[in-house]
Design a binder for these strands. Structure first.
Lengths: 364, 364
DNA sequence: TCAGGGCATGTAAACGATTACATCCGTCGA
DNA sequence: TCGACGGATGTAATCGTTTACATGCCCTGA
């Protein structure tokens, strides 16, 4: 009953506990142990407890490498970002990790900034069969790599459509609708002259929003020249740059809509440094609803992206694909919600002497 | 010379390209291919090019599972956090990923919040030999797991000393010095009544800082009752709670030092909601220098933690341990730097009628 | 001429699981 | 009573590398 430890045992590098040890101890074959672990109801009740006891006594944990080698599956997912530091993604990642873990998957995090052959590093990672699935946030694998794993390893885009990868499934936000709703809100508050600070050049998500913005603008019968769509980026700096542009304008928009909260905050800071007040002199809306949106002064009116939901949806969708269960929808769009705070205000009705006789709502 | 593809080849699930294929193509043995890859100078020049050509032609990538199984090393590291969403850690993680990747390691990110057997999940991950090293941020592996991997898999703490795990190597910031320096700075500005909003109960890092604070206070010959060390946490809410406490005080400190920027911001928000101004009525300093410290109004005076350096140091240290190269120092403390912005101001010399005759410096 | 020492390479045994196939045994229906 | 069947288990091949050991060769020094 008691295990004797041979005198030499302490000396030699102790071999790890394998399925054989368990099998021997339980008096069964390794096949039975493996089955007891993978399909418990395939082995007889009595044998099963025998096996589980032996496992508990030996402290056995199946070796992941051996398992992967034989079963051709690693239970790992690669999440590839472009800059891990971006606080927007952390909430999404959090939800992804949670969902993956409860499905038994681990998450490898990679950053594909191109310096020092980083992309090559992650190419190799997936080509060497180290992951069962890939989540692409704002970055690519190489084209060859994508071609090689096509049909073998599922790839899913998160919040970042890629025009050059049309076939890939994607989980994102209903960008058009979000742009539409925010613009309607601004128009409803009396704003007739609006600017949007866009995302980085070519960003499909931001373009979609602009589409929604333009549609709302046109839908309200406002003249297109009153809508300015500036190019930008999702950064603070882009907000500051837009502010410079804004301040130089002879006739300034009464409301500015940023492609992200960071942009909006950067804009507000810069515009305030120039002596203007927000929302006194100009209303500013953001996008995303990051943590600081509510802590900033003025607290930011913004469109909330349901980041936890996005993460969960992405992970669930990917898991379905990895387990071969048909796979969820190929394009998932979750709705945003308008969050009203202090950085946007209704416009005083002393707006420009209007030549066209439009509406004439009574001010509050 | 040309490879003929058998008619059936398209039908059957195509076997992956193995080292055998390369060996056959190059006319050498698999051992030679393996050697050409691992120790290029062990094989003759001519053979080497033969092998590399064959690799290029076949598009071979070594299978990670097989390699790990045989070589007993996965080139993977687990970074275990307690809440991935914490923006403080993302910069550190960024640096870690960068450093690990350039050393050929991948990074698995895990969150050990205890819900739904998460800890068990990551215990299993490391026990199954899936990683070569572990970085612990603010969380534990189970005690049994720690015992099991002791001496086999290096574990390193990052910015989070654990009183119950005394033996582990750690990379952190020089907390005592940081507390000391900030306090001296405040005292130098004329503050004689200071409060510190501490970290969560039992947090060693925050306690170290308090030690530095108390030493600076005592060193300046100030009465200990003028220093208040409140318990708290690193969150916004903790800042707001501290504000409530602060506002209820009959005689309020003139400077409040938060254990994190989030705490400081939470404090400022709450105190301002109550009608006070910062730094007009009370000076507030933070800790960390997160991104928003500079964007907040007033821009936060704070101690900067060199997060990128911390990450790099941690990763480098761990890599040394994993490769068996003796291993870096067991306790690394990087210095913080004082960042002066707008939330702290020199105190007007109309301070309380002092009973004790202390110093009598001339005001500026 | 030959032993011996390197070097380059090949042979084949691991690594530790999964799983197709074989085997055994008890039961049931005819 | 016998054959068929099916459930539980065992046997052994397999996954794709790495690496200890063996081999063959050339060269050098005695």
């Amino acid at each position: 009953m008691n295990k004797r430890i041979t005198p030499a045992a302490g000396k030699r590098a102790r071999r790890s506990i394998t399925i054989r040890d368990v099998a021997r101890r339980a008096g069964v074959s390794t096949a039975t142990v493996s089955r007891a672990l993978a399909n418990p109801d395939q082995v007889a009740e009595a044998t099963r407890t025998l096996v589980f006891d032996a496992i508990a006594e030996t402290g056995f944990t199946p070796n992941a490498a051996a398992r992967s080698l034989r079963a051709r599956s690693t239970k790992m997912v690669l999440a590839l970002l472009h800059g891990i530091g971006d606080s927007f993604y952390t909430v999404i990642l959090n939800a992804i990790e949670r969902t993956l873990a409860s499905a038994g998957y681990g998450m490898i995090m990679g950053d594909s900034r191109s310096e020092s052959g980083r992309q090559q590093h992650y190419d190799r990672l997936v080509r060497s069969g180290q992951v069962d699935g890939v989540l692409l946030f704002s970055s690519h694998l190489s084209a060859e790599c994508m071609a090689e794993i096509e049909g073998k390893i599922p790839v899913l885009l998160v919040c970042n459509a890629m025009p050059d990868l049309p076939g890939l499934p994607i989980v994102e936000v209903a960008n058009r609708d979000a742009g539409f709703e925010m613009t309607n809100y601004l128009i409803g508050l009396g704003h007739r002259h609006i600017a949007h600070i866009g995302g980085p050049a070519g960003n499909v998500e931001a373009l979609e929003r602009e589409r929604g913005i333009a549609e709302a603008f046109a839908g309200a019968g406002l003249p297109p020249e009153n809508l300015q769509l500036w190019d930008g980026a999702f950064s603070f700096e882009a907000g500051a740059a837009a502010a410079k542009r804004f301040l130089a304008l002879a006739r300034r928009p009464t409301a500015v809509f940023g492609a992200s909260d960071q942009v909006a905050i950067g804009f507000i800071k810069a515009v305030r440094d120039a002596g203007l007040s927000v929302p006194g002199d100009v209303s500013v809306a953001g996008f995303d609803d990051i943590e600081y949106a509510n802590l900033f002064s003025p607290a930011l009116t913004t469109m909330r992206q349901p980041r936890a939901d996005l993460g969960r949806a992405a992970a669930e969708n990917l898991v379905e694909r990895m387990t071969g269960l048909a796979g969820g929808p190929t394009r998932t769009r979750l709705p945003c919600t308008l969050v009203v705070r202090d950085s946007v205000r209704a416009i005083a009705p002393q707006s420009k002497p209007r030549s066209k006789a439009g509406e004439a709502k009574a001010p509050a």
